[in-house]
Every structure is written in C-alpha cells, then in structure tokens.
Amino acid sequence: MLFLIIKRILLGFITLFIVSIITFVGTEVLPGDACTTYLERQAFGEQLEACYRRLGLNVPAYERYVSWALNAIQGDFGYSLSGEMPIKDVLGPRIKNSLVLASAAIFIGIPIALILGIITALWRDKLPDVAISTVTIFAMTIPEFISATLLILIIAIWLEWLPGIVIVPTDVSFLELLPNIILPVVAIAMIMTAHMARMVRSSVIQVMASEYVQMAILKGVPYWKMVFKHVLPNALLPAINVVALTIAWLLGGVVVTEVVFNYPGLGRLVIESISNRDLPTVQALAIILASIYVSINLLADLLTLMLNPRLKTLQIRK
C-alpha cells in the first residue's frame, strides 16, 4: 500500500520533470530568442548583451535549465520579460482567481453530474434518460466560448440579470467577485458536467448488469438500499479517475472562458504572455498548469487506492 502511494507520487514527479523539459526545449527552439524578440530592431550590440546577461541567456542551455528548474522548485520563476516584476508576484493573485473559478465549477458540476448520471442510468431508456441524455450531448459538444457568448447575450444583454463582463481589479475580495463569476462558472461547468454525467451513467449501467447486483435483488434487498449499498460504491470508484481527467481538461476551458468574460485569471495571462512572447512566464504557466493536472490525477489515484478494498488488502495477501 505505502509502496504503491510512493510509486504514484514518484511517477507524478517524473511526469512533471518531462513536462519541464518539453516546455524548456519547446521555448528553446523558437526562431530567435527571448531577447531578440523583446528588443526587436534594437537587438544588437551592447543592448542585446545586457539583455542576455539580465536573463542569463549567455550560459549553455542545460546550465540554464538546471538553475531554472532548481529555482522553480522553490517557487521562483525568475522575472517576466516585459515587466520588471518577479513572475511569482504576477502569478499569485491570478492563480487565486482562476482557482476560485475552477473550484466553483467543480463543486457545482460534480454533484449535478452525479445526480444526472445516476438518474439517467436508473431510468435507462425511459423518458428522464432520453431527455437528460439529449441535453448532455448538446452541453458536451458546444465549445466554452460559444456557451459563454450565448450566456452573455441572453442573460446579461437581453435579460440584464447579471453582469456580462467582469470588470474588477485583480485583487478583489471573494464576496465582491461572486456576482461576477456566476456566468463564467456556468459556462465552464457545462461541458465538464455533461461529460461526467455520461460517464457516471455508463458506469452505473455496467454495475447494474453485474451478477452481484442480481444477487442482491434475489436476496430481497429493497431497491434504493441496493442502489446505495451495492451499486453506487462500485460504480463510482472507476469513475473517479475519469472525472479527474475531465477536471484537468477543464483547465483549457478556463483559459477560453476567462478571455470571453475578461476575467483576471491565469487564462488571460496565458494569452497575453504568448502574444508578447514572454517566454519565462509561459514556462512558468506550463509547469503550474501541468502540476495542477498531475496533482488532480494523483489525488484521484490515491482516492481510488484508498476506497478500493481490492487494492487496500493487496499487501496483506502477498
């Protein structure tokens, strides 16, 4: 058991290590480098040298990687290209805002997805299933920027219920933020919820067809007791990992949605830094987003390990 946990954590770090190399190499192969891009026409002579020194580009690539990686582990991503601010100071509030958005979407989305998935599975092929499944197919396929745009058009512009564009400073308090984030959260949660609902549905259907559920029925276990005791624990366990992947995928949706709502989170920073070719920031963003992905998956793995009696007792048997 302990060995398995350590192994998973180790694998997570290996993945992050590879990601860091990929992004580092990816930014290295850029035609020109950060300084020539930044300085544009002034990129020669003394000015260029100074820029190289400032960013430490005058040493070999692998040395730069090692020192960058060592600093990154301590949370220091160096300085952004354009501003003189350390990247971590730029990132801090942005991360906070994005996390608020993403976690709100997750906390709303997961319970709804569970309920919808279970309802559609238990009333399989009946009216509730057909109706909900049709809606989820639409919700699942429509890109965030479309649903976000439509939400703004209908709720904010036509009905004037909620603000359509988030116009708040980066470091606003949560309560002030709340009315502003309802629409973005709905836009983000929609795809994710639909996906998860469909996964839960098929997982529950699979378990409902199992021999042990048939046995429970033949034992005389009342329907809802059977659903909660015999079906759901076994159906939701394998769904955890898939849900984790969906959540990780949501990160991409967050970026797009933030742009639509002009929300001061990581998403806009991604677009800005890529447009400005601010490579140190891009590197930092890649690592941070990848770490979020890796930790969500790690969490899901550990949760599965903890809840699965088969894996829990693996060690005892061996």
Binding site: S210, E211, Y212, M215, K229, N234, L237, P309, R310
Partner: peptide, 16 residues
C-alpha cells in the same frame, strides 16, 4: 426462496 449462484466470486458485492 433463496438463490445460491453459480459464480460466488462474481455474485458477492466486492466492496462489502
């Protein structure tokens, strides 16, 4: 009326 199933390994709920 009670049933004794063919494959008890499959017929016992794994998480209980």
């Amino acid at each position: 009326i009670a049933m004794i199933p063919q494959n008890a390994g499959q017929a016992l709920t794994p998480n209980l």
